[in-house]
Design a protein around this nucleic acid. Structure first.
Lengths: 351, 351
DNA sequence: CTGAAAGCGCTAACAG
DNA sequence: CTGTTAGCGCTTTCAG
């Protein structure tokens, strides 16, 4: 069924059908009603490709979930517990705004081509890129396209450094530095002075920020950190487990700050295996507040990422850029929140 | 940049450009190379809408995640731990087959319109519908469209009953009856005779199958089940918690079979609150094997859903239907697996 | 207020 | 082997 068929049945021209479909003002109520009736009776829906070709928008946003490190990881992206909530909120928000979402995962360099293609082939009006380890070259290539897109969790410095066109790029971040500093201060305030750190991948903005916050905050408080108390868990539970086991071999800290919850779980695995009670013998604090964190026993003390706010902001922003046709370079940063639960013990006597 | 621009630059006609893009045989290697060079130099990608309008496929599959019950649930679809793995695998598989995925969540009756529209507007070549509580009317409406689509976890009887056109519908299920029977037999074989059941929503295929398997298996073994030992938890943790607390008030079973893991968690909450040790005082067995199940302590004994196999089969099948142009009515059913962990105790003396 | 006609970018017969 | 031509289904001037 095409618009011409509707036109015939309603006794008008295709132009008029188009006018009522697109809600133009200059159609008398009577004509509009007549046409609408035929449209509904025949379950007519205009062909998207034809509309797009004739100048309308696709009404679709691309959502690219990138995780180059996970290519050979059996627990891929969504199970990764970090991504699922982002995907959920973004899809939901976009759907509610009347947009379809084209989702694509990016594990390899090759997959990155797909995101560029999605733009170039005009499959999408705009895009959102979420995930760690963005490929700078590709991000720049996309920015050159001058199409609306927003990056979640991206180092703004990178963007500015490469003089990206500021018209069509937006970045949404969380205040990871602030959150990590908060976590470390929390431990210090409760009497911990011997604190170990399990770092995440440093080719990630959040990986770097969280680590820097740890280093700075310890230094600010005049606390020394022996080299063997800073290990790299790559954001992976198993790796953290191995590293922490080594960390705890001799000279042992009283608390461990893991740069994400997955690694906090790995640290807990290691502690348990060594017969250390949590938080009795050692305190653990994580970052992200993944769903499982609150369900553990003991429940994990951690820093909550403002995933909902970030996703919503990203979704609303692409849509705005698409509809106004003009984007503006913008940055949004949402605060984290300390979730005090059961894995940290105070070393202060009066508590 | 349009195909005509490429044609000019390469000194050929648009037809020839089209021929190399679509990999037609009758283009001499030399011409092909010349055209390809220009295409690459200019990062040209053909406009999808134009190709579709001219008769090519969209190369996009719609993925509709429906959960009508979750509309007002703060933990929506993906967090629901049941959906995330499906979405992940389907998107991954489809992407690898060279398809884009249009994702849409369906919480309400209205959202269902969107899936029909996606088909009618020719945004997608085919679709996959995953999730509980499909709206029969809508499913039938979609089947009438005669476009390739596959349903995951759907009652085939419903389809047949309504004489759906068999050309373009496929169903992928898990053997829930078999799995649930296995769980119950496992308990019985370990000496349990007093078994309670927490049912899921019965407007769901899996809800019905799991319940029926419980009832049948108990009966086959000549085991009586008092009415108050069969409660309905609606697949929701909190609801299960409440119902189980009531169930355990007086005459208490030695084991509880919950129709999904979320409810098994709720049952565990209730047991703990009543001071019952698991599995010391009461055994618990779930269904689904959600990621958290193995990470709990004690780790939850449960039945693993063949999510990966189901998702892969669904993805591959839509693509086949799209590419062959003709679908065939088909049904696939994948077996479940018992995951023996720590929440069940044997009542047999010699163990 | 409404119809006729041009055109969006591509593919596919049809000639040559 | 390659160019010319006619649409695909819609929106949008431009007349009337």
């Amino acid at each position: 069924m095409r618009s011409e068929d509707i036109a015939k049945l309603a006794g008008v021209s295709r132009s008029t059908v188009s006018r009522v479909i697109n809600n133009y003002a200059n159609v008398p109520e009577k004509t509009r009603a007549k046409v609408m009736k035929v449209i509904e009776e025949n379950h007519y829906e205009p062909n998207t490709s034809a509309r797009v070709l004739a100048g309308k928008g696709m009404n679709t946003i691309g959502l690219f979930v990138v995780s180059t490190a996970e290519l050979h990881n059996p627990n891929r992206i969504y199970q990764n517990s970090y991504f699922a909530p982002f995907v959920e909120t973004i899809v939901d928000t976009l759907n509610r705004l009347g947009y379809y979402v084209l989702i694509h995962t990016v594990y390899s360099e090759d997959d990155f081509l797909k995101v560029k293609q999605a733009f170039l082939q005009k499959r999408i009006d705009g895009g959102i890129i979420v995930g760690t380890e963005k490929n700078d070259g590709m991000v720049r290539a996309i920015a050159k396209l001058k199409l609306p897109f927003v990056l979640i969790d991206y180092d703004i410095a990178e963007l500015l450094e490469h003089r990206l066109d500021k018209e069509y790029a937006a970045v949404v971040n969380s205040k990871d530095y602030e959150g990590a500093a908060m976590a470390v201060r929390y431990l210090i305030e409760h009497g911990h002075e011997r604190i170990g750190f399990v770092s995440g991948r440093l080719n990630t903005l959040s990986g770097r920020e969280r680590r820097q916050a740890f280093v700075d905050t310890m230094q600010e408080h005049g606390l020394k950190v022996p080299e063997e108390w800073v290990v790299n868990g790559l954001f992976i539970r198993q790796k953290a487990y191995e590293e922490v086991k080594r960390m705890l071999e001799n000279n042992r800290p009283t608390a461990i700050f893991a740069a994400n919850d997955e690694m906090a779980l790995g640290a807990m695995d290691a502690c348990r295996e060594l017969g250390l009670r949590i938080p009795g013998d050692i305190s653990i604090i994580g970052f992200d507040d993944i769903p499982i964190a609150s369900q553990l026993s003991p429940a994990l003390t951690t820093v909550r990422l403002p995933i909902y706010e970030m996703s919503q902001a990203a979704a609303q922003h692409v849509v705005e850029m698409c509809e106004q046709g003009s984007g503006s370079f913008s940055t949004m940063s949402f605060p984290t929140r300390l979730m005090v639960r059961e894995t940290c013990k105070s070393l202060k006597l009066n508590e």
